[in-house]
C-alpha cells in the first residue's frame, strides 16, 4: 500500500485553477522530488497534501486512512475530524522559512508537540530530541533560541522538529530557498542522510543537482499539470518533453 496516494486533485483560488487533475502516489522509503517553474502548483500540491489548503476535487489518502474522498461529481469530501487528526500524525512538513516558534528554545521546539499532542513521555522524547540534534550537528544548541541560529541551523532544527513526531512521510517545501548558498549545503546533506536511512520524502526543490542525486523519482510540473515523471537520470538527464527541456536549460551553466 502506498504511504501517500493522491488522485485527480483539482484546486482553484477564486477563478484561477492552480492544480488540474494531478495524481501522485508515494511508496514507503521512496524519495520524490518535485521540480518546475514558479507558479506551476508545486507548493499548492504540497499544501493540499498536508491539509493546509482544501482541495476542490480529487482524493487523498495516507496508507489505509481515506482523508479525502470524492463524490459522484468528483468533488472532494473531507473525512471527519478524527480521521483528519490521525492523518496529521502520519506526515510532517518542513517549510521554506522554517516557522520555528521564536519564543521557545531549540529543544522546546522539538519536544513540545510529541509531549502535548502525542502525549508521550517527556524524558523519552527529550532523549530522542538530543539524539536528533546530535545528528544535525546541533548537540550544543539545545537551549539556543531560533533568533540566535543561522538560517541553515534553523532549518535543521525544523527538520528535527518534524522528525520527532515520527512521521511516515516528510514533505519539504523548497527547504533551501531562503538560505545562502553556503548554508544550503548543510541542509541538503541532512536530507540526503535521511534518504539513506530510507525516510519517505516528497521534496519541492529548485536544486537540480540535489534532486538528481537524492531522488528515486522526479516529477516535473508546469501550469498545474504533471508534464513528465520518472527516474532522475531520465527526467533531468534526458527529458522528453519540450517544456521540461526549456525549464532545465535555465539551470545549465
Amino acid at each position: 500500500m502506498s504511504v501517500l496516494e493522491i488522485k485527480n486533485i483539482v484546486k482553484s483560488f477564486g477563478g484561477k485553477t492552480v492544480l488540474k487533475d494531478i495524481s501522485l502516489s508515494v511508496e514507503k522509503g521512496e524519495v520524490v522530488a518535485i521540480i518546475g517553474p514558479s507558479g506551476s502548483g508545486k507548493s499548492t500540491l504540497l499544501r493540499c497534501a498536508t491539509l493546509l489548503e482544501k482541495m476542490n476535487g480529487g482524493t487523498l489518502s495516507y496508507g489505509d486512512l481515506q482523508v479525502v474522498t470524492a463524490g459522484p461529481d468528483g468533488k472532494s469530501i473531507y473525512a471527519d475530524k478524527d480521521i483528519i487528526k490521525q492523518a496529521k500524525q502520519r506526515f510532517g512538513l518542513v517549510f521554506q522559512n522554517f516557522n520555528l516558534f521564536p519564543h521557545r528554545n531549540v529543544l522546546q521546539n522539538i519536544i513540545d508537540a510529541p509531549i502535548k499532542v502525542q502525549m508521550r513521555n517527556r524524558d523519552e522524547v527529550t532523549a530522542e530530541a538530543m539524539e536528533l540534534l546530535q545528528k544535525m550537528d546541533l548537540a550544543d544548541r539545545g537551549d539556543a533560541y531560533p533568533c540566535e541560529l543561522s538560517g541553515g541551523q534553523q532549518q535543521r532544527v525544523s527538520i528535527a522538529r518534524a522528525l520527532a513526531m515520527k512521521p511516515e512521510v516528510l514533505f519539504f517545501d523548497e527547504p533551501t530557498s531562503a538560505l545562502d548558498p553556503e548554508l544550503t549545503q548543510g541542509v541538503l546533506r541532512t536530507i540526503k542522510a535521511l534518504a539513506e536511512l530510507k525516510m519517505t520524502m516528497v521534496i519541492v526543490t529548485h536544486e537540480m543537482a540535489f534532486a538528481r542525486d537524492v531522488a528515486d523519482r522526479v516529477v516535473f510540473m508546469d501550469q498545474g499539470f504533471i508534464v513528465e515523471e520518472g527516474a532522475p537520470e531520465d527526467v533531468i538527464g534526458n527529458p522528453k518533453s519540450e517544456r521540461t527541456k526549456a525549464f532545465l536549460s535555465i539551470f545549465k551553466d
Binding site: L52, K88, Q89, L93, F95, N99, A113, V117, A162, M165
Partner: peptide, 12 residues
C-alpha cells in the same frame, strides 16, 4: 500565518 500553519501540521 506560518506560525499557525506549523502548529497545524504538528497537530496542535
Amino acid at each position: 500565518t506560518g506560525q499557525y500553519e506549523a502548529a497545524d501540521v504538528l497537530g496542535y
